[in-house]
Computed example of a mutant assay.
Amino acid sequence: MWHLLEPLHAVIYYAPEAFTEAASLGYDTSERWPSYFAWRAAPLGPVGAARTASAWYSFDPAMVARYVPAVWDVATPEAVLAARLRAVDAAYRAILGDEVVEGPDIAEAAALARRAAEATDLAGRPLAAANAELPWPDAPHLVLWQAAMTLREHRGDGHLAALLTAGLDPAESLVSFAAIGAASEATFAGRGWSEKDWSAARARLAARGLVTPDGAATEAGRALRAEVERRTDELAAAPWAALGTEGTARLADLLGGPWLAVIGSGVLPSENTLGIGKV
């Protein structure tokens, strides 16, 4: 379900329509990060760098501080929240077409995804809780997107708990993920860690027997990452248990067409830190 929903959520960070909305708010769109920080952090309110870095975990805190809280000098979180719904509306219409956006399948998918999102367990999950507190939009395609956002942050919050339990700090979490071939090291550079930080994290993992000196995962390193993913799945299961096997399967069927449209649109990068592939 994560693989089906994540691309539908991620258009907010990559679609041209999202950058158009960001520019209308006054954000610099020559790079993706000003709007990324605004879009994702807005549900938390006008937070500072420390709380943002804590909630997002894998970003270098110094990188976070370059954008937060400065993004709130450009636009308020309330303005950003309204703009991101306009951005998703425009992006979905461009990618899926009006007929699909306004059709019965999207409406049914939205109702099912909302049921799952409303069943999220929010204790210790700040990003999921912040999105869950937002009012639901009226339009079904926007309900679908907001449910996808809440569900992915719910899973993400649990993933961070799994990383902490595994003893992987923010930099180590990326180095260990790159070590199993999830994406190239260059792709993870977007999280802001310096070469010195990356090398130090690799050395710490090597001392634990999790990677080789050149950064490849050892058997123990792969086993630890597998355990992190298993625990992440386990912690993300509650919404789908609440929706039930039949409801979950029906939602998966309904998401197939939109998923293919988003993946096939070329909006999302072919290599990314999200684990999203291309057809």
Rank of each mutant, 00 (worst) to 15 (best):
A82L: 14
A261G: 04
P135R: 05
R125E: 04
W33A: 13
L96R: 00
A236C: 10
P77M: 10
P135L: 06
R230V: 07
V100S: 00
S35M: 11
A261Y: 09
L5H: 01
D28E: 13
G264D: 12
G97P: 02
A111K: 04
L25V: 04
A236F: 06
L163W: 08
V88Y: 07
L174W: 02
Y27C: 05
G158F: 06
A166V: 09
A147C: 11
A38P: 00
R93F: 06
L81C: 08
A83V: 07
E31W: 07
L96K: 01
R125N: 07
R93K: 08
E195M: 08
I263A: 13
L25I: 06
A162C: 12
A186C: 02
E229P: 00
R66Q: 15
E271V: 13
V80N: 03
V68T: 08
S194M: 09
D157C: 06
I95R: 02
E99N: 05
W198R: 15
G209L: 12
R225N: 09
G256I: 01
R202Y: 10
R191I: 02
S176Q: 15
Y67E: 04
R86A: 14
L210P: 05
S24R: 15
S199H: 13
V262F: 09
L144R: 00
A107E: 06
E271G: 02
H9A: 03
A171N: 11
D73S: 15
A129Y: 03
S270V: 12
W72C: 09
R66G: 13
S176Y: 06
E6D: 12
V100Y: 05
Y36D: 07
P137N: 08
D214T: 15
Y13H: 15
E31L: 08
G26T: 08
G264P: 12
R250E: 03
L260G: 14
S176V: 10
A18V: 07
G97V: 03
R225I: 12
A252R: 04
R204H: 10
R230M: 10
V47F: 06
L4Y: 07
